[in-house]
Amino acid sequence: MRIDKDSGTQIPDMDLGKSPSGFSILLRELIRDKVAFGSLLFLFLIIAGVFGTSIIMDQSEIIKVDLFALYEPPSATYWLGTDYGGRDIFGQLIIGTRNSLAIGFLVTLLTGIIGILVGLISGYYGGTVDNIFMRFVDFFMVLPILMIVIAFVTAVPGYSILSFSLIMTAFLWMGIARLIRSKALQEKELDYVKASKTLGTSDFKIMFFQVLPNLSSIIIVTMTLNLAGNIGIESGLSFLGFGFPESTPSLGTLISYARNPQTLELRWWIWLPASILIFVLMLSINNVGQALKRATDARQRRG
């Protein structure tokens, strides 16, 4: 406490920590929006449940073929029945969701880092730097992603979650780079960037500590929405047979069983749970993404 000179009243010391930061605003908005909050809780439950149970589950046990239990409908032993190899669907669902989510998170994170770096640097400096970076982006844009991923899958037989994420990242960072670049181009024309320059702040600091926070809203929103998209891309590739082999279950491999008309018609327990799960996951992530989008714009906030 200190004493005010003029009035003699006591002024409490201000708290030295952060004032309402962006994070608490996001949280408040999420709590205020019931649907988004429900989605977030649901996502947490799914993620915790999936990653929790997958620790105690044995992947090699689940993918073991059991010829005495082909196409078993759901029962007490097999909660969601078995597939054509007698493998437990419930176990595959857990492991598959874990794999799909892990890839989604990893790809989103990696594309985010590369995209932000490239976009920010080329947008902030503009001119020649921008030209060089954008020609790189253009080059990657014209590559046939599907073809290259398929070629990769055929060429490398034993690929893992990490290598699969890396190959996807290599072809998916351009979108966010372009977005960040266009925003950075706008932002750097504002006077606060010029003010920082005249105050002697280095370009690096201006980019990452002045401009980047002003792009946080757009980054959070695109990353969240990209997460849903990236899980979808993985599932899509697996569905087409170019994702993971059956020995590494994912949501896509489970859904791909539905390509068999008999399975599609008679054995719903094989593909329906995975389909519903991916639908609900996407919906929840998008709900949360929308709420975050609102939170970053003070005019649209509800809380």
């Binding site: 962006g22 504002l190 006077d191 606060y192 003010a195 002045q210 926070p213 002003n214």
Partner: peptide, 9 residues
């Protein structure tokens, strides 16, 4: 209005 960074205190 534009010369002060809106995200900074």
């Amino acid at each position: 209005f534009s010369s002060l960074n809106p995200k900074k205190r």
